[in-house]
């Protein structure tokens, strides 16, 4: 998998996650998100429309990044989850602890 991080004009960073977030990919993904949070944007949005798969290892990376964001006063949201990824977020209870938005526009509006 890979993740590309870009900044919007509003000072929000958007991390676009592509591919499969399995055990092997989770450490690098977590590092990328922690780096993005460390740059102290106003908020970090994880855009997941190209994220095909997530396991518990991937969820951990989301959780670590969300905690770092909260500790650093950085807004945090995930958006545009594919149905299977969304199911994992819901079953695990992660959709209750991480702000999940329908799409990027909605997420940016919510974090503005």
């Amino acid at each position: 998998m890979n993740v590309n991080i870009e900044s919007t004009e509003g000072g929000v960073s958007v991390a676009r996650a592509h591919g499969r977030l399995d055990f092997g990919a989770s450490a690098e993904f977590q590092k990328a998100l922690e780096g993005a949070v460390g740059a102290k944007p106003k908020a970090l949005v994880i855009e997941c429309s190209e994220l095909e798969y997530v396991s518990s290892a991937g969820l951990r990376a989301f959780l670590v990044a969300a905690r770092a964001a909260k500790a650093g006063g950085v807004g945090f949201a995930a958006c545009a989850l594919q149905p299977a990824v969304k199911e994992v977020f819901e079953v695990s209870g992660f959709s209750k602890i991480i702000d999940v938005q329908a799409d990027l526009a909605t997420a940016l509006a919510a974090l503005a």
Partner: peptide, 24 residues
């Protein structure tokens, strides 16, 4: 099983994988 209703700060990740197996 993990407490899936716990707030972020208290959320523990141990047992999450097996919990997903049971649920899915």
């Amino acid at each position: 099983s993990p407490d899936t209703a716990a707030p972020m700060e208290d959320r523990r990740v141990g047992g999450l994988g097996v919990y997903l197996v049971r649920e899915m």
